[in-house]
Amino acid sequence: MNEQWVREGFEHYYVVPKTDGEVYEEQVLLSHMITGLLPCELRRTEDEEAYYFHLVSADLYIDQIGKLDARNFFMDLITVIEKAEEHLLNPDHFILTPRHVYVFDGKPALCYVPGNGSDITEQLREFVQSCIDRLDYRNRSQVTFFYELHNRLRKSPVSLDGLKQFITPEPVMNEMEQELPGTKEFMQEESFNRKRKKNSRMQVCSAMLYIPLLFSAAYFAARAWNEGMTYPNLRGIVIGGFLIALNT
Rank of each mutant, 00 (worst) to 15 (best):
W5S: 15
T19M: 06
G36H: 00
L37W: 00
L38A: 03
P39W: 03
D47G: 11
D59S: 11
I65T: 08
K67E: 15
K67T: 15
L68I: 06
L68Q: 07
F74G: 01
F74W: 02
M75K: 11
L77S: 06
I78G: 02
T79S: 13
V80K: 00
K83D: 00
H93T: 07
I95Y: 06
I95P: 03
L96A: 14
T97D: 13
G117N: 09
G117L: 01
D119I: 14
T121S: 04
T121R: 09
R125K: 03
F127P: 04
C131E: 15
I132C: 10
R134C: 05
R134N: 05
R140M: 14
H150F: 08
H150E: 06
N151I: 05
N151F: 12
R152N: 09
L160S: 03
L160R: 00
I167N: 00
Q178M: 06
P181T: 08
K184P: 08
M187N: 15
E190V: 10
F192C: 09
N193Q: 12
R194V: 12
R196Y: 15
R196T: 15
K197V: 10
L209E: 07
Y210S: 03
L213W: 00
F215K: 04
S216D: 10
E227M: 06
P232L: 00
N233G: 04
N233E: 01
I239D: 04
G241E: 09
G241P: 13
L243M: 12
A245N: 14
L246A: 11
